[in-house]
């Protein structure tokens, strides 16, 4: 399934066909023979089809990997980590990431390296640890164990300046006006593009001087999404962005995600509504009971298994 979008930055078609490249086995999860067949170790690289950031035109083509390629975890704060020379730094790297709420494990030994410039679907049933993982990346939760790095940095003040996070709930005071929200983003985020935000709000027909409490739930969520996507961030974390909205709103949200995100940035999108997001995904991570069950390139898995991500998801997470 392919969808075509025009990228506002370059005007070129941003055809959502995933790049293929070297695909690692994600996490320390046990690998079944079927899984190892589904995720070949090497796939020939294909030239990039979507719009490139001209500044990165001369950079070596990114190797696509979801598994920790290096033997040792990268040192926090290290710009190059322990990555091989010439290999671009992973946007997100976790090594043995664990999170417990008291005695209850939410994430268990998650190890991943997510590349930059891709839209990654963090897919799993309810309670699989998707929100916990995203909150750790956003800096809202501290892991119980393991390491997590965002562009080589541990979550903190510096990563919050480069991460744009859309939570699954309304975070603005309902008494605020849209202009207040814009002012807040403008004041605290240097990468916030106010002009783009106002343009998107204008397209939506949202009055900038309107109070959030006078809007419907769907409109408030759209305002929140517009503000998040109007940032020229390096990493976008979208937690259940299309849950609980009508199909038309869902289309708008997915269109906004694909067309508004900064070229070269990474988008991690968590959802259990696979069918709706599959057309826009470059890669995927299946999270189940806090562990990585499967991960890889969306196009590769479709080609290898002959199944869509949605079908694969239903197979992997079958309830009976």
């Amino acid at each position: 399934m392919e969808s075509t979008f025009l990228h506002p930055e370059t005007g070129e078609e941003a055809e959502k066909t995933a790049l293929t490249g070297e695909t690692g086995i994600a996490g320390e999860a046990e690998e079944t023979p079927e899984e190892s067949e589904a995720l070949p170790a090497e796939v020939p690289a294909e030239p990039e089809e979507k719009a490139e950031d001209p500044a990165e035109a001369s950079a070596p083509e990114a190797e696509i990997t979801f598994g920790p390629e290096t033997a040792a975890p990268a040192q926090p704060g290290s710009q190059s980590g322990s990555q091989p020379i010439g290999r671009p730094m992973a946007a997100v790297a976790c090594y043995g990431l664990t999170k417990r709420y008291g005695p209850t494990p939410a994430l268990t030994d998650v190890s991943l390296e997510l590349p930059a410039g891709k839209i990654i679907g963090l897919l799993g049933p309810n309670g699989s640890g998707k929100t916990t993982f995203i909150k750790i990346l956003a800096g809202l939760l501290q892991p119980t164990g393991g390491t997590v790095l965002i562009h080589g940095e541990e979550p903190g003040v510096r990563t919050k300046a480069m991460v744009s996070y859309l939570p699954e709930r309304m975070v603005f005071d309902p008494g605020m006006r849209v202009s207040d929200c814009i002012g807040l983003f403008r004041d605290f985020y240097a990468d916030f593009d106010e002009r783009r935000a106002r343009e998107m709000l204008s397209i939506l027909g949202v009055p900038v001087d309107g109070k959030l409490k006078t809007f419907s739930k769907g409109t408030r969520e759209k305002v929140q999404l517009v503000l998040v996507m109007a940032r020229r961030a390096k990493l976008y974390l979208l937690d259940e962005p299309i849950g609980g909205v009508d199909p038309a709103a869902r289309d708008f949200i997915l269109h906004t995600i694909v067309t508004a995100y900064e070229p070269g940035a990474t988008v991690i999108l968590s959802t259990h509504l696979i069918r709706d997001v599959e057309p826009i995904l470059d890669g995927f991570v299946f999270l189940g009971s806090g562990s990585v069950i499967m991960s890889g390139e969306a196009e590769t898995i479709r080609a290898d298994t002959g199944k869509s991500l949605d079908e694969l998801f239903r197979e992997v997470f079958r309830c009976w």
Binding site: A138, G139, L140, V157, R158, K160, A161, V163, Y165, P167, R169, V171, F172, L184, F188, Y189
Partner: peptide, 8 residues
Amino acid sequence: YLTFTLPV
């Protein structure tokens, strides 16, 4: 969620 994701 907003307060603690500000870069401060």
